[in-house]
Design a protein around this nucleic acid. Sequence first.
DNA 1: GTCCATCTAGTCAAATTTGAATAGATGCTT
DNA 2: AAGCATCTATTCAAATTTGACTAGATGGAC
Lengths: 185, 185
Amino acid sequence: MSAARLLVLGALARRGIAHGYGVHQDLVSWRADTWTSVKPGSIYHALEKLASQGLIEPSSSEDSTKLGPARTEYAITEEGRQEFIRLLEAALKNNDFQMVAAGIAFMEFLPRARAARLLEERLDSLRATVSFLRTLPTQPIPADPSKHPELVGLWVGYFDYAVASTESLLQALRSGSYLFIDEQK
Amino acid sequence: MSAARLLVLGALARRGIAHGYGVHQDLVSWRADTWTSVKPGSIYHALEKLASQGLIEPSSSEDSTKLGPARTEYAITEEGRQEFIRLLEAALKNNDFQMVAAGIAFMEFLPRARAARLLEERLDSLRATVSFLRTLPTQPIPADPSKHPELVGLWVGYFDYAVASTESLLQALRSGSYLFIDEQK
DNA sequence: GTCCATCTAGTCAAATTTGAATAGATGCTT
DNA sequence: AAGCATCTATTCAAATTTGACTAGATGGAC
């Protein structure tokens, strides 16, 4: 699964209609560029691919405030929304940090209980990784990089942090923070 | 820069001679698969690319313990070693976690002082990112994902951790841990 | 009124990655 | 001794990403 596909679908799900440059600007304004690296080319590719699959459709809502060169606008379809939800669920279970971050950015598109459930699954998988890493030997002067104590230590620390931050997010969800799609304002 | 290229060159630098499957096994045995995701196809691609650039050369040291199907073995050339050092230096300064991890795995191929210097540069850049992230607002109920407090919090925590782990590694280097290429055993 | 910087918007070839498939060798089991 | 799982080793098409480039519009300075 590509992070670009999820981010582009998510941007479309939020806005309803958008063009490539607009999606790019959204990502920048969300600071998504701090935690992912989705270049313009990838956005346009994702848009074309999604359009060829019928998940989004070229739309001609020629915005009156249009500036600069011609743009191609797309609207998300019903199938696109379904695909978005599928990718979102996969992202929240994913072990890759970029994917998880993208998933969290859009988590309110899922029902609260579902988001919490997915984060619990992620927690299980992270804890399993921590347990595994702790079984690795850390020798003072390693003969090969696998035993580089600082490298193993780096990863243990990283996964410990991932566990802690996921727990705290889950806590926030359970205590009613945020407004999810299944809830009234 | 591709992590695959650095990992393949590094594996060759350690072994002198290797074939694709062997490189893959090295990466697995170093647990590199925990922190990167380099599929076999990428390894073979990197080998072919490096060979076409003269950084490695097909070698015919037909190992007598050969098993299974025919293999193509490669030896690293002098230019390959130079490129390896270039990539290694870039990796240690890099902000991408996978790159840094690969850089740390091979850091003893640099002189100790040089490795320390590169990690200091990385530290500066990480601290700048932390400062920037702390300037972002964190509102209780965000209107858009950029202000998702948990998302910003996630990244602050992540970069804080990166700073702390880099500091501790630097400390270890300065206090004489590990054996670097410029040092006698 | 024209030069130029900047913002808007997108295109494209080349490089890289992915995922799935192919295929030889070895050894166990029945 | 035939079947079959597993380990060894690689290939390849398709998908995706990268990096560099093209190009129209606006606004300000001169």
